[in-house]
Design a binder for these strands. Sequence first.
DNA 1: AGCCAGGACAAGT
DNA 2: ACTTGTCATGGC
Length: 293
Amino acid sequence: MSAYVISEKDGVLRVGGTGDFSVFSTFDCGQCFRFDPVENSPYKIEYAGVARGRKIGFAQNEPGEIYIIGAAKEDFPVWEDYLALDVDYGAMNEAMVLGVPEGSDREMMKRAVEASRGIRILRQDRWEALCSFIVSQNNNIPRIKKIIAALCEKYGRDIGGAHDFPTAESLDKAGEEALFALRTGFRAKYIANAARAVSGDAEFLGRVAAAKDYADAESLLVSLKGVGPKVAACTLLFGFERYDAFPVDVWIKKVLAKRFSEGFDYHVFGNSAGVAQQYLFYFERYLGGEDEK
DNA sequence: AGCCAGGACAAGT
DNA sequence: ACTTGTCATGGC
């Protein structure tokens, strides 16, 4: 899977051999909050933002190739990892469809997989994922992005024309009142609490990562005030590569109720449940309104 | 204008 | 073990 054709020109990497990877669906599917589409881009699709402590852009004109903007050739492994280009999604897609009992549910899942083709679960920073999804609770995506932008602007390290995601230490120092002032609302105390827990215990996130069973990883996260099953699942899926996590939000409830048979159990997706969830979220959130049942 | 958002918590059945 | 009201804010 690593037959990439990489060339570099003026700080832009062109990477060929990326299969069905889609810059658009990957960065527009609601998993990350620090990327925005670039207006008047010379590319068909371009998203710019901050990841892995750097300003970075990803662009695409056609399937099978992408552009990494603001990167050198030797940086490629970093972005290969971030974009999860090394993960075999073909196999996962097949497995998650075959996991569903034959019939209308399986046909429905095929549709979702096809509509979402090219989405990759990004390997995001652990703390950033935890903190971001605490912010996400009972909130909408545009406002989540706005709040996170404000957090980064005010408390993130300056990386030249942008700011990195603030460390747990810096948010702990900022304190609840300052976080509330950034319009985080009732989440301010949760963010402050998590920042204190993570900065005060250097091993905390490591223990979460080391937990073998999903239930163990979840219970560690849920021990934080303001982190419930949904936020924990998102944190584990997007920050800890736990594809067995299946975050259930209002959109997932909707798509399951509307398009799957009663009593459908997501556990049939097995170790690809998280990816399946992201497909279903994308399908319903962005495409769902078009064919009401 | 009012409903709702990638929910969690506490109090009440 | 389930159900309900509450929490801040602003997008649409």
